[in-house]
């Protein structure tokens, strides 16, 4: 299993519905924007191989449905994440207000070993929209990120490919750092018992 040598970074993208999670991901991976992505149902991911400081890593970017009630099933994907990207729409204050609960929810569900140091990145998307529609100022967003322990913050436009590459570079870097810190301190054993079923007492024989 030589492929195991490859580093796989699992990144979860969260945020309210319609803030542009799918678009950001597709802009980064496929260099494409479409105004007509359907609302994401369930979950999906894209992968992209990138070089981080001369190391080839595979990023697995998980896209989830934004409506909160779908999250209770989505927790399955949070596990083993190396970085969490919180997205809001700068023209929609509600989507900014919910960032905090997205973050909390993630920490509860993913239960990383050291929640304090777990890497988040915040993206304020849709900066291409007319300035008059803007609801959340850079200042306000930065203040929020500061208060949460200095979360990196980018203002992006998936539509016009503004800052997307830069943001994901930081995401990759932070995820890699997280992954490596885990290596010293494995959360769970790398080897996996195969026949869990046999340990069950009540099997139906």
């Amino acid at each position: 299993m030589s492929s195991r040598k490859k580093i796989l970074l699992k990144v979860i993208i969260l945020g309210d519905s319609g803030v542009g999670k799918t678009s950001l991901m597709n802009q980064y991976v496929n260099k494409k924007f479409s105004a007509s992505y359907k609302a994401t149902i369930g979950a999906d991911f894209l992968t992209k191989e990138v070089l981080v400081d001369d190391r080839l890593v595979t990023m697995q970017l998980w896209d989830t449905a934004g409506q909160e009630r779908f999250q209770s099933l989505g927790v399955a994907f949070y596990r083993g994440a190396d970085c969490c990207v919180l997205v809001y729409d700068v023209n929609n204050s509600k989507s900014f207000d919910t960032l905090d609960s997205w973050r909390d929810e993630f920490l509860i569900q993913a239960s990383p070993m050291d929640p304090e140091s777990f890497p988040f990145v915040v993206l304020g998307n849709k900066v291409d929209v007319d300035e008059s529609k803007r609801m959340i100022s850079s200042k306000r967003a930065q203040a929020f990120c500061q208060s949460k322990g200095g979360i990196p913050y980018f203002e992006t436009s998936a539509k016009e490919a503004v800052n997307v590459e830069q943001a994901f570079e930081v995401i990759a870097r932070n995820a890699l750092a997280q992954e490596e810190s885990q290596d010293f301190n494995p959360d769970f054993p790398e080897t996996i018992p195969i026949n869990i079923g046999e340990e069950n007492q009540g099997c139906s024989c």
């Binding site: 099933l73 927790v75 399955a76 994907f77 083993g80 996996i192 018992p193 869990i196 340990e199 069950n200």
Partner: peptide
């Protein structure tokens, strides 16, 4: 169901 993917920990049987 809640257990989901990820490395195969004993968690599914543990939870059960």
């Amino acid at each position: 169901i809640a257990n989901g993917p990820g490395p195969r920990p004993g968690s599914s049987s543990a939870a059960a």
